[in-house]
Write a protein that binds this DNA or RNA. Sequence first.
DNA 1: ATCGGAAATGTGAGCGTTCACAATGACGGT
DNA 2: ACCGTCATTGTGAACGCTCACATTTCCGAT
Lengths: 344, 344
Amino acid sequence: MVTIEDVARAAGVSRQTVSRVINRGPNVKAEVRQRVEALVEALGYVPNLSARRMGGGRSFLILAVNDRARTLENWRAGRGNDWVDQMLYGGMTECERHGYHLVFELIDTGADVAVRQLANVIGALRPDGVILTPPHSENDALVALLDQRAIPCARIGYRGQGAHIDVYMDERRAAREITEHLLALGHRRLGFIAGTPSYGASRARIEGFRGAITSAGLPDDAGFVRNGDFKFETAAGIVAEALAQDPAPTAIIADNDEMAFAVLHVADREGVRVPDTLSVVSFEDTPGVRFSVPPLSAIRQPTAAMIEKACERLIAAASGEASAGCYELPYLYLERASIGPGPP
Amino acid sequence: MVTIEDVARAAGVSRQTVSRVINRGPNVKAEVRQRVEALVEALGYVPNLSARRMGGGRSFLILAVNDRARTLENWRAGRGNDWVDQMLYGGMTECERHGYHLVFELIDTGADVAVRQLANVIGALRPDGVILTPPHSENDALVALLDQRAIPCARIGYRGQGAHIDVYMDERRAAREITEHLLALGHRRLGFIAGTPSYGASRARIEGFRGAITSAGLPDDAGFVRNGDFKFETAAGIVAEALAQDPAPTAIIADNDEMAFAVLHVADREGVRVPDTLSVVSFEDTPGVRFSVPPLSAIRQPTAAMIEKACERLIAAASGEASAGCYELPYLYLERASIGPGPP
DNA sequence: ATCGGAAATGTGAGCGTTCACAATGACGGT
DNA sequence: ACCGTCATTGTGAACGCTCACATTTCCGAT
């Protein structure tokens, strides 16, 4: 393999000058820079990342951390992992732009285990930045560890005090807006099937849902909230019960696609037409929703964009820029056939 | 950060002895080994991968290469990327088991570009092994580059001469078996909507499909083949035309889910009931198929298992074991409601 | 011509490992 | 007690880069 020394020799300069050229450092004569660049190209020289890291302390690696249980569960269930997929998309694209590489790892949820596992990974890899996704983004012990090791950290789906890089969307506003949208369509009896309360975004959405109902001057029982667990079966039970009420809800918001599918399924079984007598909206928008019958309207987290932003800020941080801050990204609302006007 | 030297000092041994312990080398007294291991744990020592790579030539990195166009297209279309997702699952799980890390990269399709891009990535990362997925697994220039750099390489979905690590499933047999299954159900008029002919697996499946028809003693026109492009629209056109034939096919096999969805869509539009008068099978099985109406029967590539196997063999190769060879993995056939008996 | 200072370039050291080899220790056989 | 052998441990050097600093070159002002 050709090293920096080979290029230096060929160009008749010292390795440090070649190093300056690669790193776009100042104080290199234009003529020399060109000559070196040509040689780099001609010899096919590619700087060795390990050596760069040894010499200069930068690894050109960004570590993206996901929750093991949640990720594996999706995989094992054959359910796919759109979140992971979107992360990869946003992360890789941005990393590539800056000559960085993305390494994806899973760590467990428990506080102690998580810290130990993260310590191991950053010890081995020495990434220039770490992306924490829910629920790890809410784990202060992990953030403390990274702070102590002076590794910049970006939290996804979490809004802190501005001392770190926080990238998120406004879950509450999204829930509020979609609820207002349904109210404007004439719905007066709404249901929200939430996920587990431990899920921060879920709590925020419930707030938004309730807020919209209250602000519209409607009685509290115009909108009911039930906690599911993101699973089909549980949600199906909740839906069956809800549809049996009198008056029955004319619109249901589900916290994720699987539960929204349960709504469609039960509605079909009970002879309730969607969207004619029941409107359905989901808070996830995995690829499958386009093929459900009818296709689901959904609010989608800007996952790829969030990870892209996180990478961008982390790389900036590694380059010495000040980059902490709170970055709110807009969500997408994708209206499809599962939503329609309320009762006359 | 604590280094090997710190551990050595604390244990009262030399760094080389600590190195032997970490690498499970021979010739270390049990008592010393224990003492060192305890200290490693106590001090939280984690070997620095960059330094390891500098000293010993091993990077503990596996590089997984995917096709950029195909991957990005899926992402941009909001279609998700089950393949990538499955790769990650199988790859990470296996890498983690051996203290390895998986790095995922995209490269373009053209021969020259691909070689240049791969050269850049392996130059920077110096991975201990590279996984090539279709269509790169069929690109000899890439394999030659890796051979020249002495980096072990695993090809997914391709069967070579045994000089490399090839991991694949028998596409032809899968197609043959599903066709035979349809014939056994009484279908006598079958259609195969293939992808683009440049896709090797697609060609193999066509062979299997035709083989089954012929072996059953049926005339060639009992099974027709049409080339689509994996896209909904094109497939929809093909299906509309096919269903208008007399006699119309009673079973259609599609090369991927999107085209299978097109079959369902057109059938519904034309008033053809699935599975009553038309059976549908897909060759992909992304998560969404479970939610289609009716759910699609499908043959699924053992993607995660293939990548897992590839990683396992690559890591073995990096550890000095002989590991080249051809590894055929079993596919899965998932029968769902889209398939039924043929006409009486 | 001379000098000062900035721009351009070069030099030694060090990053944390492993390698190849050297040195020491232990143990059994004579 | 002594030697050979093997097991165990230690020692420089090297890997390919960047850092901090030293040196040289250049240019305009005196």
